[in-house]
Simulated scan of single mutants.
Amino acid sequence: MNWVLGIMTAVLVFLIVKRFIKPKYLKDLNQDEFIQGYRKAQLIDVREQREYETGHILGSRNIPMSQLRQRAGEIRPDKPVYLYCQSGARSIRAAEFLKKKHKCEDLSHLKGGFRKWTGKIKK
């Protein structure tokens, strides 16, 4: 019985770590780096619509994480993709999906997410 508990604990730890560890192919950009390149990229806010409506980075498109599978066709895999969410966790998951299922290669996300953003926003 102890070995079952050990396996369950190991799986749980793995899933928690995987959720918050940034993949190697994803560029982790601070705000200044993000600002330098996001106008030349597809800027995608993966927060839910109600979060987006409270304020978002000017020029971003809202494709919530909950709709990403259905709306991935709106994102061009041959162009750079800049992602952000509230804290950075959902944008990492969105990047994983876009890399594996949509074949996007040039993926970046805003380190710390929108909550750390001090630039211009639109409400």
Results as ranks from 00 to 15, higher is better:
2 N>D: 10
27 K>E: 12
60 S>E: 07
113 G>C: 04
102 H>M: 06
59 G>K: 10
53 E>G: 03
16 I>C: 10
82 Y>H: 15
93 R>H: 08
86 Q>S: 10
3 W>N: 13
88 G>D: 00
34 F>Q: 06
116 K>T: 15
96 E>N: 14
78 D>M: 06
57 I>G: 08
96 E>A: 11
68 L>R: 09
91 S>D: 10
12 L>N: 09
45 D>R: 09
83 L>R: 07
65 M>N: 00
69 R>N: 12
104 C>G: 00
8 M>E: 07
65 M>R: 06
114 F>N: 08
108 S>K: 12
61 R>S: 15
104 C>A: 13
39 R>L: 14
106 D>Y: 03
79 K>F: 08
4 V>Q: 10
44 I>Y: 07
122 K>T: 15
30 N>C: 03
78 D>V: 02
88 G>Y: 05
107 L>R: 02
10 A>P: 00
86 Q>D: 10
69 R>L: 14
23 P>K: 03
103 K>R: 13
34 F>N: 09
45 D>E: 10
72 A>I: 07
72 A>K: 14
92 I>V: 13
49 Q>N: 15
27 K>L: 10
109 H>I: 05
64 P>L: 01
121 I>N: 05
106 D>I: 04
15 L>N: 13
13 V>N: 05
40 K>V: 10
25 Y>T: 01
94 A>V: 04
42 Q>G: 11
56 H>C: 03
7 I>H: 01
84 Y>R: 06
6 G>Y: 12
101 K>M: 09
7 I>P: 01
9 T>A: 15
51 E>S: 11
50 R>S: 13
16 I>D: 00
49 Q>P: 13
3 W>K: 14
9 T>V: 15
2 N>W: 11
38 Y>D: 04
82 Y>P: 02
123 K>L: 02
41 A>H: 14
96 E>W: 02
115 R>I: 15
105 E>P: 00
118 T>K: 14
86 Q>C: 01
63 I>F: 08
120 K>N: 11
89 A>H: 06
56 H>I: 03
52 Y>Q: 03
104 C>E: 03
56 H>W: 04
35 I>C: 06
33 E>V: 06
